[in-house]
């Protein structure tokens, strides 16, 4: 189907797919890491400023 050019077309698509997928994965992992950080901080007693104001 691709003829002689498969050696160029396939890598082009594969690399594109890899880069785009890596972006999504990276963003998702960062999100999870930040949520974990926030949980950890909440558990150790730190409060957000707006939450502190609400408690007063």
């Amino acid at each position: 189907m691709f003829g002689d050019y498969a050696g160029f077309i396939v890598p082009a698509y594969v690399i594109s797919a890899l880069v785009l997928a890596s972006l999504i994965v990276w963003l998702w992992l960062q999100h999870r890491a930040r949520l974990r950080d926030l949980d950890e901080l909440e558990r150790s007693g730190a409060r957000r400023r707006s939450a502190m104001k609400g408690e007063r």
């Binding site: 963003l27 999100h31 930040r34 949520l35 926030l38 901080l41 730190a46 409060r47 400023r49």
Partner: peptide, 20 residues
């Protein structure tokens, strides 16, 4: 949008850590 969300959360974490 995902990246902006992450950046906002990152700043929150940083602020909370500093305040703690």
């Amino acid at each position: 949008l995902m990246a902006m969300r992450n950046e906002i959360l990152r700043r929150r974490v940083r602020t909370m850590r500093i305040q703690a």
